[in-house]
Simulated assay, not measured.
Amino acid sequence: MTPGTTVRGSGPGLLLAHGAGGGVEANYGPILEGLAARHTVVGVDYPGAGATPRAGRPLDLDGLADALVAAADAEGLDTFAVSGYSLGGPVAIRVAARHPDRVRALVLSATFAHADTRTTLVADIWHELFESGRHALLARYVNLMAVGEPVLNTLSPDQVRAAAEQLATGFPVGTGDQVDLVRRVDVRGDLAGLSVPALVVVTTADPLVSPTLQRELAAALPAAEVAELPTGHLPFVERPGEWLRLIDDFLARVG
């Protein structure tokens, strides 16, 4: 198996595309075994995440999409569903646009078709804090921008500081490259041509990717249905069981 590739389970193929500054295990870990109970799950860490080395050049959606499909090929998967979380949503959309005959379904969670002004501002600050080495401050910023307000307010300031201290030591080396891609993403031109069944999971308490932007994506996808999940940007932390059920139920219905 290629370094940076995750393969679990058996059954119909399910590809996982993770978010910026994350990884397959980081973003899907709490639901990975649940997904693998019914699917052959294949995920690839982006350059600079997990065991995948940095690319040495700006990342692009086509490259990330093709790497994911190559991993599916290596596992003998002719067709597959694709689940994209956050930045992984545009990656999943690009997989479907480039390989329409192979994608059976899309699941798009906490994601966007393009970065609006607010998302770009968030990414700009994230990128600057990472590249300048201010990782402790970045960790505090990520907690503010990723955790839903109801959950964040159940924690004490000391608990938030402790969580930030732990997070600050674990940012992938390619975080800056991945966040830079967030600022450049625009798959709006791909959407109208996609007829594949799609589930858009809107994270309704998301401070990082606004629910408005998520609903705009769903409205532009011809065959999309919407499920609303009352969570911030981290459904795998705040509501993993509900997130898993939404994905499983949808994939069971559409095949």
Results as ranks from 00 to 15, higher is better:
V42G: 11
A123Q: 12
L59A: 06
R184V: 03
G241M: 01
V151I: 14
A110Q: 08
A163T: 14
V122A: 13
D206N: 10
F130N: 05
G4D: 01
R102S: 02
L32V: 03
P211D: 04
G232P: 06
P58G: 01
A139E: 12
L108E: 03
L246R: 09
T117G: 10
D101A: 09
V226T: 01
A162D: 14
V82L: 03
A252L: 05
Q178N: 14
V107R: 01
R54L: 13
G50F: 00
L61G: 00
A49C: 15
E225M: 05
P12A: 08
P30A: 11
G189M: 09
V160M: 15
A37K: 12
D206I: 12
A81L: 01
V103P: 00
R104N: 06
G84T: 06
L15E: 08
V41G: 00
E216Q: 12
W243D: 00
A123K: 13
V44R: 13
V24C: 00
D180Y: 14
T231C: 12
P3C: 08
G241F: 00
G4M: 00
G9K: 11
A71E: 09
G56S: 03
D180T: 15
N27Y: 04
Q159H: 10
Q214N: 03
L64E: 11
T203N: 10
A17S: 13
A198S: 13
A123G: 10
Q166D: 15
L217I: 09
V254H: 03
I247F: 04
R102I: 00
Y28T: 01
E242F: 05
V254M: 00
L59D: 08
D186T: 13
L217G: 02
P12W: 06
G170H: 14
G22L: 07
Q214G: 07
V69C: 08
L251I: 00
G63F: 08
F236L: 14
T212E: 13
D62F: 06
T120P: 08
L167N: 09
A146V: 15
H127K: 14
A146H: 15
Q214C: 02
L181M: 10
R102H: 04
M1W: 11
G148L: 13
E25V: 13
A55H: 15
M145G: 15
S210M: 09
A205N: 14
L194G: 02
G255R: 04
L129W: 07
Q214S: 05
R118C: 10
R94N: 11
A139T: 14
A55E: 10
L221Q: 01
V91Q: 10
T79N: 04
G50V: 01
G9I: 14
L138T: 11
V179K: 15
D186H: 14
V185N: 03
L217S: 05
P3G: 03
I93H: 12
L61P: 04
P58Y: 07
R118G: 13
L77Y: 13
P12M: 11
L234S: 10
G56A: 13
A37M: 06
T203G: 13
S10T: 13
N143V: 15
D249K: 00
